[in-house]
Every structure is written in C-alpha cells, then in structure tokens.
Nucleic acid binder design. Structure first.
Lengths: 212, 212
DNA sequence: GCCTATTCTAAACGTATGTTTTAAACAGGT
DNA sequence: ACCTGTTTAAAACATACGTTTAGAATAGGC
C-alpha cells in the first residue's frame, strides 16, 4: 500500500543523498551510521529499516545511479557508431574513449545535481575490499565488454589482452583524476587550478587516446 | 640508554611491518589497533607507547620507506642524465618516465622484501582524507619538481601547466595499476593475468610515454 | 471511524574501539 | 648489587559503533 511520505523529500532518498556524499569523502568504515542519520535528519534506525544494514545502504547508493550512467555510455557509443556508419567510416578511437569517459567526467563537473558526488563515491568504492564490490563491479565490466569489439576493429593489431590492459589504464587515469581533483593545485604549486569540465575531459581523453 | 631488545626482530619494526600490510589492504578506519598488535604479537599498548597514537603509527609507516623510494627516483634520474650527456644527446622521455615509475613498480613486484606491500599502502594513503596526508605528500611533490625542468627541455612546446597535468595523470595510471593489480583478471575475464614486473612496467611506461 | 500496513521514535543491547593507567620485568652502566 | 631508563603486561576507561526491539504515530482503504 504505497502512500505519500510525511517528511518532505522522502526520507529514504535523503539518506541515500547524504550517505553518497559521506562515502564519497571517506571510507566505508570511517562513515558511521549515526553520522548519516543525523545529517539526513532521520532516526538512527532508519538505515536498518530501509536498507537492512550499513552494507546494504552502501550497495543501494551504488545501484541508484549505476544503471543510468552505463546506459549513457552505451548511448554515446551507439550514437558515435551510427554517425560513423552514416559517414561511411570507422568509428574513431577518440569517440570510443570519449563515450566511456564523458558520462563520469561530465557528471563529476556537474554542479547542479548530486551526480558529481556519485562519481567520487564510485572511485572510492572501487577500493573497498568487501567481496561484495567484485559483484557490484560486474555491471561496469559488462559495459566495457561491449566496447571491446570496436577497439579491435579499429586497432586490429592489438590482442584482446592489450585492449583490456589499456581500458584498465584508462580507468586508472580517470579514477585518479576524480579522486585527486582537488590535489592538482597542490602538486602544481597552484599553477594548475580546477578548470572547466570540458578542459579536464579534453586533457583526459587526449592523454588516453595517445596512450592507447 | 640504547639497549638490545628482548623479543627477537624488534617489536617496533614488527608493528610497522604488520600495520603496513593491514593498511595496504584496508582503510585507516577499518584497521584496528588491536588487529595490529595481535598480529604483531605485541601488547595492545605498544602502538601508543612507540607511536603515540594510531595516526602516528600510520605516519610512521609512510615515512619509513618514503625517503628511500624518492632517493631511488632521483638516482635513476641522475643516471639517465649522465648517460645522455656522455652520449651528447637529450635525455629521453621514456627515461624520465621510467625513472619516476620504476621504483614503485619494481617494489610492487618485489616478492622478497616488504616493499611491495608498502607500494599498495602508499596508493591507499593518497586517498585518506586526513589533513596530515597533504603534508606527507609534500615530499613526493618535491621530487617531481626536480623532474619538471627535464620535461620542459625535451618538450619545450608544453607549458608548465601541461606538464603538471601529465605527471598527475601518470601517477593516476600508476596508483590504479597498483590498487587494482588483482582486478585486471576480473576485468578481462581471465584473459590477462598478473604478468611479470617487467611486463607490467613496460606496458605502463609505454602508455604514459604515449599519453605524454 | 476503524483497520492495517507502513513509517517513525526512543531506548537499550552487546560489542569493539583508541587511549590511559599502573605496575611489573628487563637490560646495561657503574 | 643497586640504580636508571626502557620496554612489556594486564586491566580499566570512556566512548562510539551497528543493530535490535517495542511501541507510538501516521496515512490511506473501506
């Protein structure tokens, strides 16, 4: 019997928003259920009520936006593919890489929605040792598999192994860029500042294209 | 009054070894002082006795090998520089990048000593939010500064900003490779296995060279 | 207005945490 | 042997943790 909630913008959603942010800034263990519930202004037991456990909450944060992001990736891939076919040419390496990296990078720089927080959350989630995470990552792996044939088509000299390694490296650059977005200015003694999303994306895509 | 210790290979060192490993596999918060002391077979209070606090222990783990690693980097840089001068040529880009990446990557693949654990520890430490870490990273930043003029010499078309960005990306690929060393086989459906240290290093250096 | 399922609240539980304290054991130096 | 500084030991401290429980509040369906 679905009803309207009492407390404004849905307590459940508010918990997800808050924990997304906290998990983005700290490790799983360093974020307490109490810090979540107090910041979300819900009762302590709400987390266990809605998500069963702290681990369940973490999982829910991941799932909420993962599907959407991977759909965006596949959508961009599809678009680029159609455009290439229409122009009677192969898909470009930069288009492939851009399709993989643009959703997270754009989300990262998206100030308005909570997506930027999600991307930082994701990059951190990859480091959690929970055996859950491997299962959770499956979805992303499946998406990448869809890209592999395209890479092979335009770089036939590469083995599958080569391609997986390079995708692996690309994700590395990306996650690092995300996790240390704020540290580039420290490294460069303020020579570099956080630029626009396009600037960051272009630098990143460029680096990866050449590396590939 | 410096004396010989009673319990074999120095309790203090044993604590560092154990916590290095535990911090390499989990976040700061997820590692308990008790798990350290019990695995190191020392009394619970030993951590606070030797290092003042858990945070102090973490810091000590970092410091123990950081200086050595950065010395190795500078040593390789110096070697390459001398070799290039002797041959009357500019230093190669690959030599520069190799000097930065070889120490951590070789340590990573070094089965014998505890260095491999340290490298994983390091990559994780970068993500700890403690304001301490920024100070701790200064040392590495200083080393990279020594490399910048060389990059500028052989790539005069690049601005300092460009160079910092690319060093930034390189560290990203490296840390990711380290943190997800075990996951490459998951991503590739077992197509890729953890190869030799040379293989990994070469792939990595190559990717970074081209990206640069 | 009553019923039922859902949501929220407050309190408590048991355990694990980092740190401190107090005292015992120990190892040279003289 | 005695002293002194260092290291180990066991216990206790206070707090923070994730989770559970039992009951109050709430909202629609009829």
């Amino acid at each position: 019997m679905k009803t309207k909630k009492s407390k404004g913008p849905d307590a459940k959603e508010r918990i997800l928003d808050v924990s997304e942010e906290l998990f983005a800034n700290g490790s799983f263990a360093s974020v307490s259920v109490r810090s979540v519930t107090s910041k979300a202004e819900v009762n302590l037991s709400a987390v266990n009520y809605y998500f069963g456990s702290k681990q369940g909450l973490f999982h829910a944060v991941y799932v909420r936006r993962a599907t959407l992001m991977n759909h965006e990736r596949l959508h961009l891939l599809h678009e680029a593919d159609e455009k290439a076919q229409a122009e009677g040419r192969d898909i470009l390496l930069s288009e492939l890489i851009s399709a993989m990296l643009t959703p997270p990078i754009f989300w990262l720089c998206d100030e308005e929605k909570g997506f930027s927080v999600y991307i930082r959350f994701l990059a951190r989630a990859y480091l959690e040792e929970s055996s859950d995470m491997d299962k959770v990552l499956r979805q992303e792996v499946d998406v990448f598999d869809r890209f592999v044939p395209y890479f092979q088509k335009i770089r036939p000299e590469l083995t599958k192994e080569d391609i997986y390694w390079r995708i692996h490296f690309m994700m590395g650059v990306m996650h690092h860029t995300i996790n240390h977005f704020h540290r580039i200015s420290l490294l460069s003694h303020k020579a570099c500042e956080k630029g626009s999303s396009e600037d960051t994306r272009d630098r990143l895509v460029n680096f990866c294209c050449e590396g590939f």
